[in-house]
């Protein structure tokens, strides 16, 4: 007999709402039997749900024969993949060299203050997810951030916060 341990589960993963995995069928059909399709499958899945739900891994495993451990390894390796839902708008703050020398750190800090979330987190209202990224390749406009597909350049803290506020306002008015 060994020492008695308490079976404490580590910090449990948040239980998320179940998703409709049948949405993945066309995607799986498209890539079935093609080699090297793991990453496109995950990208496609993320496009469907905004993140990769647990069920999706299981579905991919049973429908394509891909191994869960490998998929999970890939999904956690690449910065692009998310395992939990994200906000409606993803703010990608460029932390490239040019942006760094133009003091993007201060801009990010102002945004963090405004949004009250840390890097990688999502605001409580689900509107924004903040991500710092390596380089968006718009160095001449540094500091730069990208919200959705739109790029905003030559930022300072004030300007960045204003963009967020404007978007919030728009969101509220459109709701009403």
């Amino acid at each position: 007999m060994r020492v008695a341990r308490l079976h404490k589960n580590g910090s449990s993963v948040k239980v998320l709402k179940p998703v409709d995995i049948s949405l993945m069928d066309p995607l799986i059909e498209k890539y079935k039997g093609k080699k090297g399709s793991l990453i496109p499958l995950l990208q496609g899945t993320q496009n469907l749900y905004g993140y990769i739900p647990r069920e999706a891994f299981q579905k991919l495993a049973s429908d394509t024969g891909l191994k869960i451990s490998e998929m999970y390894g890939v999904a956690t390796f690449y910065a692009q993949f998310r395992l939990s839902p994200v906000g409606k708008n993803i703010i990608r703050m460029c932390h490239g060299t040019a942006c760094h020398v133009q003091n993007v750190t201060a801009v990010t800090e102002d945004l963090i203050d405004e949004l009250k979330i840390k890097d990688g987190e999502t605001t409580e209202d689900g509107l924004f997810t903040l991500e710092t990224v390596a380089c968006l390749g718009c160095c001449s406009l540094a500091p730069v951030m990208m919200i959705g597909e739109e790029t905003h350049g030559k930022l300072d803290g004030k300007k960045a916060v204003k963009i967020i506020k404007d978007m919030r306002r728009k969101e509220v008015t459109s709701k009403n």
Binding site: V13, R54, F57, K67, I68, S69, E70, Y72, G73, T76, F77, Y78
Partner: peptide, 19 residues
């Protein structure tokens, strides 16, 4: 394929599928 690498770089660790 019961275990795999999770995360990248210094954060990497070995874990069973889906942890």
């Amino acid at each position: 394929n019961a275990i795999g690498l999770v995360n990248r770089g210094f954060e990497t660790f070995v874990a069973p599928s889906l942890r």
